[in-house]
Amino acid sequence: MTEPTVGLTEPVDFESDVPVYEQIGNRLKFAVARGAYAPGDRLPSVRALARSLLVNPNTIVRVYRELEGAGLIESQRGRGVFVTRAAARRCQRERTTIVEERLREAIALARRAALDDDEIEALLARLLAEDATRPDGGRDAGSGDHEARRVASDV
């Protein structure tokens, strides 16, 4: 089976505070945002995605239902689930929100660790520089903890 599962098949983090359906939903949004799925592309079937992530299929059903409710995908009876025309721009917007949220958490962590603004900025600058020297150039960001590592292999 050669269904496209770009950026979706890294292990889900069951210990994370982020619910599993939300982790998977975020991955799909990121995949759409970076163009891995274009408008009109078909997403993996519920079964294929459930099997490759090894999660309950009802979880995937929920992910797809919520994405459909948000107008990002549409299901066509008997044919599958497809990315909508409006999805790319919306996912790009949402990607920013999700990354913002992560950075906010990181800043909160830094504050708890009693780092000051200069130290946080220096740290970020160093990490960005390090990332830029990686073979893939650190082009893309991802959802969740695994995303950044994964992107290198599936972009």
Binding site: R47, R51, L54, N56
Partner: peptide, 13 residues
């Protein structure tokens, strides 16, 4: 165990 989980996924589907 992995096979079993995949089979259960198929069954629920």
């Amino acid at each position: 165990r992995h096979e079993l989980m995949e089979l259960l996924i198929d069954l629920v589907q």
